[in-house]
Design a protein around this nucleic acid. Structure first.
Lengths: 205, 205
DNA sequence: TAGATTGTTAATCGATTAACAATC
DNA sequence: TAGATTGTTAATCGATTAACAATC
């Protein structure tokens, strides 16, 4: 029912709704959400309709109701624990990030091979990767952020999967070759940057 | 000719090819590239064909030739200068990043409202945003990375556009409302994380 | 009743794959 | 000639939009 692209949209509706709610709005029209998310109003209505979310023919959608329904779809009941592997530039940014709770996630630990990185400087403990299994078992962790250098990404990912990880948000610019039961979501910042510059270049011509 | 999704693929072929070349390979088959990128071999051949890139019917594609052709497509002749706005978690990661050169980009300056952040600690200077116009003019900058907090993203982006920026890589989780001539590429790390967790959750059922 | 909105069905569009032809 | 590969055309699939019906 929910394709990968639709999932992304529904999540962006949720973000926009949280913003609108904070601003005090009680009702949202497909048109309003369209302005906030950049998705066409028809598509928004269709998405909601397909998920069994109903509005009022004249009065739009109730913000709280929408958020509830989206929570039913996405809201993992219990908070989900995650870990972070690699404390380079990106890893250091993500260990300091404070907004996991907002998405009902909880960063419980980070890992780095460099002992110098394993300080108490951060709000979560930093271990050697050898301790992954232990942490994963203790905190029921199945999802990890991978932010190690390109050259060690494959090997590290493999080790992670061997020790209980089933989902990886991968910042390394390589395709990870992993067993079929493992889900990987890739973020490649430099490719996004190049894409932007390419399309700017095209416009100039 | 090149849609937005195809652009992303072509860039990923390029990355894979650079890797293969580093490993000493001279020839690449669509099949090889498929393994490296996760894109189907047919689609790879079709992409190349549409871009006028030819292989040998039996001998695959020549790696150097492929890279040359891709460079012709994406390689901006002169190095492109970019700036970074916002030195929070993500911003600090990106100012330390060393790989811009590899994509023929050059980070020339960063900006932050907090004077405490405007130190000489980094390899590029950090200014107040007031100096953006000056820097943009001097270094012919039209593309910027935006890594400020959500609440100030819209205002900051607007100011940037008023001062010569025409392309933004946006890490703030909001849809920026900007004039039509401005291109925005959004990266929303938490949405990607939630998407991953959602699809993991689905598998469990 | 008129107007504004949601909801749905059919049409369109674009991206991907299947099937096969070409050729080294 | 047989086999492996590229290259192309047609078929399929999925996502989006257009048109319109329903209703508050």
């Amino acid at each position: 029912m929910t394709g990968i692209v639709q999932t992304k949209r529904l999540l962006s509706y949720r973000m926009a709704l949280l913003r609108l709610k904070k601003m005090g709005l009680k009702k949202a029209y497909s048109h309003t959400l369209s302005e906030e998310t950049g998705v066409s109003a028809v598509l928004i209505r269709k998405d909601f309709s397909q998920c069994g979310i109903r509005g009022k023919r004249r009065g739009g959608y109730d913000v709280d109701y929408l958020l509830d329904e989206l929570k039913k779809l996405f809201g993992r009941e219990k908070e989900q624990n995650v870990v972070l592997v690699g404390l380079g530039n990106i890893g250091s940014a993500l260990i300091k990030y404070e907004g996991y709770r907002q998405s009902n996630m909880n960063l419980v630990a980070a890992f780095d091979i460099d002992p110098a990185k394993r300080t108490r400087r951060y709000s979560v403990p930093v271990y050697s990767l050898e301790n992954l299994r232990e942490v994963a078992d203790a905190f029921d962790v199945s999802v990890a952020i991978l932010a190690v250098p390109e050259f060690s990404a494959q090997e590290t990912a493999h080790y992670m999967v061997e020790n209980g990880i089933r989902g990886i948000l991968n910042f390394a610019p390589v395709l990870l070759k992993l067993p079929g039961h493992v889900l990987v979501n890739n973020i490649n910042i430099m490719v996004e940057m190049e894409r932007l510059m390419y399309h700017i270049g095209i416009r100039e011509k």
